[in-house]
Amino acid sequence: MRMINNQFIIKIGLTIFLLLCLFNMPYGFYQFVRFFALIGFAILAYQSYQQSKEIEMSIYISLALLFQPFFKIALGRELWNIVDVVVGIGLIISIFMNRKTTDNK
């Protein structure tokens, strides 16, 4: 149950920060979001690995690489906004999907 709580907190936090990126923020905020996303997605990938969820693990690793702050991927503001919204919605959907699977057990 503790791992699910950690996943919930990380996913909600990531969603909030990604959606805040839609607003005009200082550059340092976007750098912080990149570091937070890298760490958050890495933790989610590790927890998925522990639960033998290879597909989720691969998705989280890919997202960690996409958001990592060291070798930036230049997509342009509009495309990054789309990515932020899609990933945020995906995280919210994954919260409800994980709740359904834990409720059925």
Results as ranks from 00 to 15, higher is better:
residue 2 R to N: 14
residue 2 R to I: 13
residue 3 M to I: 13
residue 4 I to C: 08
residue 4 I to Y: 15
residue 5 N to P: 02
residue 6 N to F: 13
residue 7 Q to S: 15
residue 9 I to D: 09
residue 10 I to D: 02
residue 11 K to R: 15
residue 12 I to R: 07
residue 12 I to A: 13
residue 13 G to N: 08
residue 13 G to S: 06
residue 13 G to Q: 07
residue 13 G to A: 08
residue 13 G to D: 07
residue 14 L to G: 01
residue 14 L to H: 00
residue 14 L to V: 03
residue 15 T to W: 03
residue 15 T to Y: 03
residue 16 I to L: 14
residue 17 F to Q: 09
residue 18 L to P: 01
residue 20 L to R: 02
residue 21 C to S: 12
residue 21 C to P: 01
residue 22 L to E: 07
residue 22 L to K: 01
residue 23 F to G: 04
residue 25 M to T: 08
residue 25 M to S: 06
residue 27 Y to E: 15
residue 27 Y to M: 10
residue 27 Y to I: 10
residue 27 Y to V: 06
residue 29 F to H: 02
residue 31 Q to H: 06
residue 31 Q to E: 11
residue 33 V to P: 00
residue 33 V to C: 01
residue 34 R to E: 09
residue 35 F to C: 05
residue 35 F to S: 02
residue 36 F to R: 02
residue 37 A to P: 01
residue 38 L to Q: 05
residue 39 I to P: 02
residue 39 I to K: 04
residue 40 G to W: 00
residue 41 F to R: 00
residue 42 A to D: 02
residue 42 A to M: 10
residue 42 A to G: 14
residue 42 A to K: 03
residue 44 L to H: 02
residue 45 A to W: 03
residue 47 Q to A: 03
residue 47 Q to C: 05
residue 49 Y to K: 13
residue 49 Y to H: 14
residue 52 S to Y: 12
residue 52 S to Q: 15
residue 53 K to G: 00
residue 53 K to D: 15
residue 53 K to R: 12
residue 54 E to L: 12
residue 55 I to C: 01
residue 56 E to F: 07
residue 56 E to Y: 08
residue 57 M to L: 09
residue 57 M to Q: 15
residue 57 M to E: 15
residue 58 S to R: 12
residue 59 I to W: 06
residue 59 I to F: 09
residue 59 I to L: 13
residue 60 Y to E: 09
residue 61 I to P: 01
residue 61 I to T: 08
residue 63 L to I: 06
residue 64 A to S: 14
residue 64 A to F: 06
residue 65 L to G: 14
residue 66 L to M: 14
residue 66 L to D: 04
residue 67 F to E: 02
residue 69 P to E: 13
residue 69 P to H: 10
residue 69 P to T: 10
residue 70 F to S: 06
residue 70 F to T: 06
residue 71 F to S: 10
residue 72 K to S: 09
residue 73 I to K: 10
residue 73 I to G: 03
residue 76 G to I: 08
residue 76 G to Y: 10
residue 77 R to K: 13
residue 77 R to Y: 11
residue 78 E to R: 07
residue 78 E to L: 11
residue 79 L to T: 14
residue 81 N to D: 15
residue 82 I to V: 13
residue 82 I to W: 12
residue 84 D to Y: 10
residue 84 D to G: 00
residue 85 V to R: 05
residue 86 V to S: 08
residue 88 G to W: 00
residue 88 G to N: 02
residue 88 G to Y: 00
residue 89 I to R: 03
residue 90 G to I: 05
residue 90 G to D: 06
residue 90 G to L: 04
residue 91 L to H: 02
residue 92 I to Q: 05
residue 93 I to S: 08
residue 94 S to G: 05
residue 94 S to M: 08
residue 95 I to G: 00
residue 95 I to K: 04
residue 95 I to H: 01
residue 97 M to Q: 15
residue 99 R to D: 13
residue 99 R to W: 14
residue 99 R to E: 15
residue 99 R to Q: 13
residue 99 R to S: 11
residue 100 K to D: 14
residue 100 K to T: 09
residue 100 K to Q: 15
residue 100 K to W: 12
residue 101 T to L: 11
residue 101 T to D: 12
residue 101 T to Q: 12
residue 102 T to V: 11
residue 102 T to W: 07
residue 102 T to E: 09
residue 102 T to Y: 10
residue 104 N to Q: 14
residue 105 K to P: 00
residue 105 K to R: 09
residue 105 K to C: 01
residue 105 K to V: 04
